[in-house]
Simulated scan of single mutants.
Amino acid sequence: MAGLIPFNRKKNDLLRSDFGDFGSMLDDFFTDPFPFRRSLEADTFKVDVEDGEKEYIVHAELPGVKKEEVALSLEDGRLRISVQRNEEKEEKNKNYIHRERRVCSMERNVFLAEAGEENIKAKLEHGVLKIEIPKKPHVDTSKRIDIE
């Protein structure tokens, strides 16, 4: 256990005391590109993959995403889930000094070795996308070799 190294020492609150790292905190404040910060946590969505006996079940957490904003594809066993969002509100009779919009694109790829391409089901409900992918029937390709 002593050899474990935290993933991100800079942001690990477990290693910090109350004010022991005050100098680093000030450095982080002035060097951190706050409005443009990118991280795996902010830029992607969570995906769980269950390997069942006859099918794969994939759950992707997509809160606030509409089904029109999601694209799914399966090619050579690789499941691709992509989300393209454009959050813009049309407001008339407003005199803006500053106005922002948000455009977001996220994608996850999962390799499913035995994924079949027929009878795939997908449903987006309460912010969770559930995808059921049947497995290909296992074909025995072994060949008996006779000894002379």
Results as ranks from 00 to 15, higher is better:
D146A: 13
V65Q: 10
D51Y: 08
L124R: 04
R144F: 12
G52C: 10
H126M: 07
V65M: 03
I5N: 10
A2S: 11
I57P: 00
A113H: 11
F29N: 01
V58Q: 12
E125F: 01
E125R: 10
I147L: 15
D32Q: 00
L40V: 08
V70T: 07
E75G: 05
R99L: 10
K130Y: 00
D51S: 01
K10N: 07
S82H: 08
A2Y: 07
R37A: 04
Q84V: 05
K46S: 09
I147V: 13
P137T: 15
S24N: 13
R9E: 11
E53V: 07
F45R: 09
D32E: 04
P137M: 15
E69R: 03
L15F: 06
V70R: 11
E107P: 02
E148V: 09
V70Y: 05
I131Q: 06
D32I: 01
K46I: 06
E107R: 09
F22Y: 02
L72T: 08
F34R: 07
D28T: 03
G64A: 07
F34Q: 07
T31K: 03
V103I: 09
E100N: 05
N119F: 06
H98K: 12
P6W: 09
F111V: 13
E50S: 13
S73K: 14
R80G: 08
S24E: 01
P134V: 10
I147Y: 12
D32V: 01
H138V: 12
E90Y: 13
D21L: 00
A115D: 05
L14G: 05
S24W: 02
L4W: 11
K130T: 14
I57K: 15
H98C: 04
R38I: 04
K67R: 12
V128W: 04
P63C: 09
G116D: 15
V70L: 12
E118C: 03
S24V: 00
I5P: 03
L112E: 00
I120G: 10
